[in-house]
Simulated scan of single mutants.
Amino acid sequence: MTDRTAAAELDRLLAIMARLRDPETGCPWDRVQTHASIAPYAIEEAYEVMDTIAREDWRSLPDELGDLLLQVVYQARIAQEAGRFDFATVARMIGDKMIRRHPHVFGDATLDSDLWERNKEAERASRKEHGALAGIPDHLPALMKAGKYSARAARVGFDWGTAEEALDKIGEEIEEVRAELAGGDLDRLEDEIGDVLFTTANLARKLKLDPEACLRRANAKFARRFNDMEDILAESGSVIAEQDLATLETLWQDVKRRHKDADTAE
């Protein structure tokens, strides 16, 4: 596909959105949407893109990317109607940012592994965002946000020296959870379990792993094993809810052994 064709298709999409938002002849649902009302859809569509890529469903990926692009077009159209900015502003600003952050490509600078983050820090400073944690979005998934917080703190020297030290800290945090169990104070337990999760995200970072990706993998593994348990029981006319815990634990360990190679290769 040529750039000219891409530009034509984008113009068509912008025109479609303008018509959907027309105050007299547009879609009744689309006309009343606001920045805030459609914002959650951008998150949903981004996760659908991630899921499609994880499944390597390349035939569906253009459609899912289109859904995500629509959210950008939608937000830009609402802003244009309010006189704030338009889609061209969005495209120009990201283009300018990419050029600014890649002087080794678009200028005469040499490649510097820290340049990207230094440029981001300079941009945050220009927006008067102060502090090492500035600019991290409030609405990120909590585990992803923990990873970003700890990475920013590490860049200014607030970090463990080794992954083993982070692992030891997880042990300490788990003992603090254990100490709170007898009291049954849910607020204190929530606080201590949060510390365990935050420190675990730190350990993943120290090992150069994405904590969000680690948890997604664990979720997928659990779902696969649990579904297998249900299938095995269904073959004998049983269901999980009818089994005692000892039987389920035996079945769980059996499923783990059956699929150990597949889980490791994931």
Rank of each mutant, 00 (worst) to 15 (best):
K120I: 08
S238R: 15
T200V: 11
D168S: 02
V73L: 12
P28Q: 04
I240L: 14
E172G: 09
R257L: 06
R127M: 08
P137G: 07
K169S: 12
T5H: 15
D67W: 05
A241P: 02
A39C: 03
R155G: 08
Q243G: 08
A265N: 11
K128R: 15
A88Y: 14
R124N: 14
W252G: 04
R124F: 09
E64A: 08
K206V: 05
D138F: 07
A220I: 04
V72N: 00
E117D: 13
G135Y: 07
A6V: 06
S236G: 14
L203F: 06
M98C: 07
A82L: 12
S126F: 14
D22A: 11
A154T: 03
K120S: 12
M50A: 15
A204Q: 00
Y74K: 12
P137C: 12
D195M: 14
L186F: 03
T110S: 06
A154G: 05
A201W: 00
M1Q: 07
G157N: 01
D67A: 04
L65R: 02
L233A: 08
E180L: 15
E212Y: 13
A179Y: 02
R19A: 09
L209C: 04
L14R: 08
D231R: 14
A154N: 00
T34L: 05
G237P: 01
Q71D: 01
Q253F: 05
M144A: 15
D67L: 01
L111Q: 04
Q33C: 02
R4E: 15
R155D: 13
F158D: 14
P141K: 03
L203V: 12
Y47N: 08
A213N: 05
F226T: 14
L20A: 07
T199E: 05
W160C: 12
S236L: 05
L197V: 09
T5R: 14
A163P: 00
D261N: 11
A18S: 15
R124I: 05
H102A: 14
V177Y: 00
T200P: 00
T110A: 08
S37W: 12
H102T: 13
L209N: 01
A91Y: 11
K208W: 06
E81Q: 13
L69R: 03
A179V: 06
L14D: 05
M1A: 08
A166E: 00
A166R: 00
D96P: 03
H35M: 09
E175I: 04
A182R: 14
